[in-house]
């Protein structure tokens, strides 16, 4: 019961964020999975299809926000609905932090996205569920930089 990886891809399939909670993946695997997942997800019709697909002994839970796909891969037995909600939570945190987040924010501040991700998720689990606390924490850390 854990998240295996979280990916943020744009519609062309470019990686905007890749967090692999399990270090057993090789670089080659990461690249292959990323492009396969993009192909899988971008071909699905969001209106009529669910946000879940089974892939490589995992379940992909994804959601599209404007031009970006937020994807997390979870265990087959994990709750898809809760994971979807936590992805949305992550996006909401980003949105507040950047004040209307867009793809360019993710490109130029990729390391900040990772910092925020590390406050939302830890060791493949969502660790904090209060938006205020996370933002407060990240801002405090930013001040120390």
């Amino acid at each position: 019961m854990a998240i295996h990886y979280i990916l943020v891809l744009n519609r062309q399939g470019k990686t905007r964020l890749g967090k692999w909670f399990n270090n057993a993946y090789t670089e080659g695997e990461k690249q292959r999975y990323t492009s396969e997942i993009h192909r899988l997800i971008s071909s699905r019709a969001s209106k009529i299809q669910s946000n879940f697909i089974e892939y490589q002994q995992c379940k992909l839970v994804y959601r599209r926000y404007a031009g970006l796909y937020f994807i997390s891969a979870i265990d087959i037995s994990d709750s898809e609905l809760a994971s979807l909600e936590s992805l949305h939570f992550f996006v909401e945190v980003l949105d507040t932090y950047f004040d209307n987040v867009c793809e360019l924010d993710l490109i130029f501040n990729f390391y900040k996205i990772y910092y925020i991700l590390d406050e939302v998720y830890l060791a493949g689990q969502y660790q904090e569920i209060s938006k205020e606390r996370i933002l407060e924490r990240v801002r405090m850390l930013d001040k120390l930089d």
Binding site: K19, N23, A24, Y25, T26, Y111, Y114, Y115, D118, L141, L144, D145
Partner: peptide, 18 residues
């Protein structure tokens, strides 16, 4: 320095494998 440590740890978690 905190800023160094923060980025250093981030880079370590991403670039290193086990």
């Amino acid at each position: 320095r905190f800023a160094d440590k923060r980025l250093g740890y981030l880079a370590t978690t991403l670039l290193l494998d086990e």
